[in-house]
């Protein structure tokens, strides 16, 4: 079997930093690739893209909300404004996959909803399936969003909000924007569900409906007091209409204001470091389980080690992976299952 040639990570990183679209595309393909050799190169790519500047560059915005709330139209309207002001935009649009026993396929329809009809070199959209992350955000979103941050001014992650997603997206985005649908049960459910403290900004879409939109906005405004992860931020609730193109500018100002707030309070770098640590722990746990995490010294130690090296977390992640893998192989007589997995790794290489 011949495997397709994989790109040289360091060269690729240099091209991505120059904003070459082809390089961005092949970088994203590489990060999506699960073959062992590709994983090594992914780690090298991300390491080559990392650095201090990475903790302060760009703006990563998560947009979530119930199905039918008009997230894609809203994102599309925001993109139009950003592009008019000369900012480049990268989008990761996540749609659900069908269950593995039903084939695990996905219809990715956000692209058609987001894109403008004209050709635009300053906009890059990658659609992603949620894969087997039940209701959550695909694990690939994390490294991909960080790659995009290296070359776009604004990076948007759009997901359908179904509980777990908000929690996941809060562990990626600098700013999380929840899009509410007026007069719909979804929003009420959401208010009740106790995860209202996650978003930083609320946008009630379809405000051209009038009273129902204002009612939903005031319900959100009156909702339970929040003990928030980001103190002293005043949670704006704004009325927007993607189709009528109203309130878009204000929503963007809230986003920008939120980023400034994080930067001025010295929180942006800390937040990103924390998010990265959380994802590394999550990925390690997913791959090796609690036991594997213990082999690396346990959750607390791993978290500590990551926080100490905020600018090279991907390299750290790969070192931890290798460490756990070697411990698995040397410490244990491999069980038949781990042996099989190990063999798979070998044959794939």
């Amino acid at each position: 079997m011949t495997s397709p040639t994989l790109p040289d990570p360091e060269q690729l990183a240099a091209r991505i930093l120059r904003g070459e679209r082809a390089a961005v595309a092949s970088g994203l393909n590489l990060l999506d690739n699960k073959l062992a050799e590709a994983r090594n190169r992914s780690a090298r790519l991300l390491a080559a893209l990392s650095g201090e500047r990475w903790l302060s560059r760009g703006h990563l915005i998560g947009v979530t909300g119930p199905p039918g709330a008009g997230k894609s139209s809203l994102v599309s309207a925001m993109i139009r404004e950003w592009r008019l002001s000369g900012k480049t935009v990268g989008v990761l649009a996540v749609d659900p996959s069908s269950r593995p026993e039903l084939g695990g396929g996905a219809l990715l329809g956000d692209r058609i909803r987001i894109k403008n009809s004209s050709h635009d070199e300053g906009l890059f959209i990658r659609s992603l399936a949620s894969r087997n992350q039940l209701g959550g955000v695909a694990t690939e979103v994390w490294p991909m969003s960080w790659l995009m941050l290296a070359c776009f001014d604004i990076v948007i992650i759009e997901t359908v909000g179904v509980g777990q997603t908000e929690i996941d997206i809060a562990e990626i985005g600098d700013t999380v924007c929840y899009v509410a649908q007026p007069a719909s049960g979804d929003t009420i459910q959401y208010l009740k569900s106790g995860i209202i403290e996650i978003p930083d900004i609320f946008a009630v879409n379809k405000c051209d409906l009038g009273a129902p939109a204002r009612k939903t906005a005031s319900e959100i405004g009156r909702s339970a007091p929040r003990h928030d992860r980001r103190e002293n931020w005043d949670y704006p609730v704004c009325l927007v209409s993607a189709t009528m193109n109203t309130g878009i500018r204000q929503l963007q100002e809230h986003c920008e204001r939120h980023r400034e707030f994080l930067a001025n309070a010295g929180l942006l770098g800390k937040l990103r470091t924390r998010h990265q640590s959380a994802w590394v722990v999550r990925l390690l746990k997913e791959e090796f389980g609690t036991f594997g995490l213990e082999l690396a010294g346990g959750r607390a130690v791993v978290g500590e080690r990551l926080r100490e090296n905020p600018s090279s977390q991907f390299a750290e992640y790969e070192r931890l992976r290798q460490h756990i893998l070697s411990r698995f192989m040397s410490v244990n007589q491999p069980s038949s299952l781990t042996k099989k997995e190990h063999l798979d790794e070998q044959t794939i290489v």
Partner: peptide, 23 residues
């Protein structure tokens, strides 16, 4: 399959761009 449905009335340029962006 993971399917990106890009709809109707596309220029060849838009299709090629989508193929690239979507990998």
């Amino acid at each position: 399959f993971e399917v990106v449905y890009d709809g109707i009335r596309l220029t060849p340029q838009q299709i090629a761009q989508a193929a690239q962006e979507e990998g």
